[in-house]
Amino acid sequence: MPAAQTPPSSQKAFLETEDGTTVPCLFNPAQLKITRSNTWAGAALPGRGVTRLRYTGANSGVLRVDLFFDTTDTGTDVSAHTGTIVDLMEVDPTLPGTDETKHSVRPPYVTFHWGDLHSFKAVIEHLDLTFTYFSSTGMPLRATMGLVLRQYEESQAFGRQNPTSGTPRPHRVHRVQAGETLDRISAQYYGDATRWRLLASANAIADPLALRPGSMLTIPKLDS
Score class of each variant (00 low, 15 high):
76 T>V: 11
115 G>C: 07
149 L>G: 10
145 M>I: 11
36 R>E: 02
117 L>G: 03
52 R>G: 09
67 L>Q: 06
78 V>F: 07
114 W>V: 01
59 N>V: 05
83 G>D: 12
72 T>Y: 07
50 V>P: 09
41 A>W: 08
37 S>Q: 15
143 A>D: 05
135 S>R: 09
139 M>W: 03
44 A>I: 06
141 L>W: 02
74 T>I: 11
150 R>N: 04
53 L>W: 07
89 M>I: 11
104 S>W: 08
93 P>Y: 06
125 E>S: 15
56 T>V: 12
55 Y>M: 05
133 Y>H: 09
144 T>H: 11
53 L>Y: 08
71 T>L: 09
146 G>R: 10
29 P>N: 04
143 A>P: 03
77 D>W: 00
75 G>N: 11
87 D>P: 10
154 E>K: 15
141 L>Y: 02
48 R>Q: 09
135 S>I: 01
112 F>H: 05
62 V>A: 12
150 R>V: 10
147 L>C: 14
33 K>E: 05
39 T>F: 00
29 P>T: 05
61 G>W: 03
149 L>A: 11
82 T>V: 13
143 A>Y: 04
126 H>W: 00
30 A>H: 13
86 V>L: 13
47 G>V: 01
75 G>K: 13
92 D>G: 08
45 L>E: 15
113 H>P: 08
150 R>G: 03
128 D>K: 12
72 T>D: 05
128 D>N: 12
35 T>Q: 06
88 L>W: 12
42 G>A: 12
90 E>V: 01
82 T>L: 10
106 R>M: 03
31 Q>V: 03
122 A>N: 02
115 G>Q: 09
102 K>R: 13
48 R>Y: 07
156 Q>M: 02
140 P>L: 10
54 R>H: 11
125 E>Q: 15
104 S>N: 14
110 V>R: 06
101 T>C: 00
140 P>I: 11
55 Y>K: 05
55 Y>P: 08
109 Y>F: 03
124 I>D: 09
80 A>W: 14
132 T>K: 13
125 E>H: 14
52 R>S: 08
81 H>T: 04
129 L>M: 01
33 K>D: 10
80 A>Q: 15
